[in-house]
Design a protein around this nucleic acid. Structure first.
Lengths: 365, 365
DNA sequence: CTGTTAGCGCGTTCAC
DNA sequence: GTGAACGCGCTAACAG
């Protein structure tokens, strides 16, 4: 049982050639007679030789690695984004390494250090905070960086995101149109651009409709289930409970459902619920939750494509911003009176492929 | 600005000391006067110095990296496993890099090469196939390896898995008890140990009850949504459709629901459905889908703990096998006549923590 | 077409 | 307490 990992020297010795020849044959670059080539390949296979990526990377200054930093890997929105990133990366001979920052700036900072240390060739990040400080090491070191989902003030890089203001306005208007008036907004951390944008859109839809928002029904906090659970619970225990709840991400909607279920309240009869980012798995089983679905997979693929151009140097221009359209998926939790017909596009298909509602128009800014 | 990544030399120059001193200070090993220490730290901070992991790894023969290979990263079962792995790894100063094999042996092989090349210190893998061949490079190179979820004949390593036979028997018995007789088994790839085990349990439950299985209702194929969708569809279009469908993973249940929805059939009135591996997000919104929930998070943490012992050399003994108990979550899709009370444990909580039903007894074999 | 050699950035002896 | 020098495994010049 081996135990010792073979190196180029071992292969060279076995094939009776020099290390340089081995390197040339295996990396495909440089000349080699078909006979020696054969010899080397044979020896490499016999030894089960795998090149040491560290040594190679140290020499070539290339790692073939792309870093992806997401705030919450168990959230299907981000797994779908990551599939998009991965598919494009792999198609271009790059591997991705995923870091889960847990919405935690300190963890994010640690990951960025690790990524720099790993000599990744580029980074795609959905930032946990609003501070540019965490990301600056990437900028000063000229490591190609692309943001997804969330913008950060003071960081001028390519970014692929949704239109938080417009999306929130659309979703809110949808609820207003359904007759709801006391609408709660369970928002994420105001540190993030999306949270601020979505609150703005929420207010705007009210203003446009000439309806005043209920300030007491607006709250912000973390993006997590538990936090939303607590906040919605408090609202429900109040004398005048909200008629509808808008959660600014899918996890917070789950928190809302938990609070409702605990109190024996039913959706949408007692309280309507709608949220951002579809929960595909749930919708597959029962298309119930009304959601503003961002094109997660497409976000990932586009972010990776932008990154590729930066890495290759194809594009050295000004930072680009791609704003993708979301799609309103009116189902039943909002109190819709629509009857869903079999075959209706009220749910999305396998997240490993671009989905129907992901044909959002690309708006370049 | 910058653009050039600083090295030990830059730090040394700025601090007016030698590279050796810089290395000693920053790695914490070796002596240094508090004055020079100060100088070095200062210079490093000013330059935003981050050590080159490749160079360091090349020298120390340590990467601080753990590889995790899963067949399908968008499947919540595996994301939950990966959270478990990550939490334990991080607590021990290790980072994980995740590879998505897509149930594809070739992709798995490529990833394993990459992982070896990356000099990972250990590997946790849910194998895509039944062949030991893909994994042997890890064994011959003495890279600590732990399997999760799926066993592979001929690979003698630590493994953490569920009890496929018992779990399938329990779930099947549950459906039989509810009165279903024509039960379809939509199985995954028989290449994998779990698929074989689950079929065995399915048959056993029938035998125990003195009821014969309907061979025409048993099928196997890939673990993917689309495949299950097609197979269930064919069954439904048959003259005598099944009364119940057991999907051997959560994704295949989704495929079943798709086929049912297309045909306007309702669950459980027209056809009952149950599956392996809970879909937590869906259950949070509505605890509907009856499932045999494996303790995914715990699987991840235990696998990582076993791996840590192998890496540290604490345990050099025989391969261990940890078999975790699953929990039957009888909800409504199976045709249960239970009325679910608010507060009932019919769903699980945040997957980033060990959940209630994950208190499975640990059975050591 | 092939072998010798230098050096990527770091940690680590060993002298001083 | 500190610096000079070597080598981890690999690739890229340069000779031959």
């Amino acid at each position: 049982m081996g135990g010792v990992v073979p190196t180029v020297h071992d292969v060279a010795g076995r094939a009776g050639v020099s290390v340089a020849t081995v390197s040339r044959v295996l990396s495909g670059r440089g000349y080699a007679s078909s006979r020696t080539r054969e010899l080397v390949l044979q020896a490499a296979k016999e030894l089960d030789y795998v090149p040491n990526g560290m040594a190679r990377g140290l020499k070539t200054q290339r790692s073939g690695l792309i870093a992806l930093l997401v705030p919450e890997i168990v959230n299907s929105f981000y797994t779908t984004v990551s599939r998009g990133v991965e598919d494009v990366a792999n198609a271009n001979g790059l591997q991705i390494i995923v870091g889960n920052t847990d919405e935690n700036v300190a963890k994010e900072r640690a990951y960025i250090e690790l990524m720099i240390s790993s000599q990744v060739e580029g980074v795609i990040v959905a930032p946990a905070g609003s501070s540019a400080e965490t990301l600056t090491p990437l900028i000063t070191k000229n490591i190609p960086t692309v943001l997804v989902d969330r913008a950060v003030a003071g960081i001028a890089t390519d970014i692929v995101r949704g239109d938080g203001v417009a999306d929130a306005a659309t979703l809110t208007r949808h609820l207003l149109d359904l007759g709801h008036r006391r609408i709660a907004l369970i928002n994420g951390h105001l540190d993030t651009s999306v949270a601020r944008d979505r609150e703005q859109g929420f207010r705007q839809a009210h203003a446009d409709a000439g309806i005043s928002v209920h300030e007491g029904l607006i709250s912000s906090g973390t993006w997590f289930i538990d936090d939303a659970h607590g906040r919605v619970g408090a609202l429900l225990d109040d004398v005048k409970r909200p008629e509808a709840v808008v959660a600014t991400n899918n996890f917070m909607a789950i928190g809302a459902f938990r609070a409702l279920r605990e109190r024996g309240l039913s959706v949408p009869d007692d309280v309507a619920v709608a949220c951002f980012d579809d929960i595909v798995d749930a919708a597959e089983i029962d298309p119930f939750l009304t959601a503003m679905a961002q094109p997660a997979y497409t976000m990932g693929t586009l972010a990776m494509q932008l990154l590729l151009e930066r890495i290759a140097g194809t594009n050295q221009g000004e930072p680009r911003e791609i704003v993708l359209e979301s799609q309103l998926l009116p189902r039943r939790s909002g109190g819709e009176r629509l009857t869903v017909q079999p075959g209706d596009v009220t749910h999305v298909s396998t997240p490993s492929n671009a989905t129907q509602h992901e044909r959002g128009t690309v708006v370049l800014t």
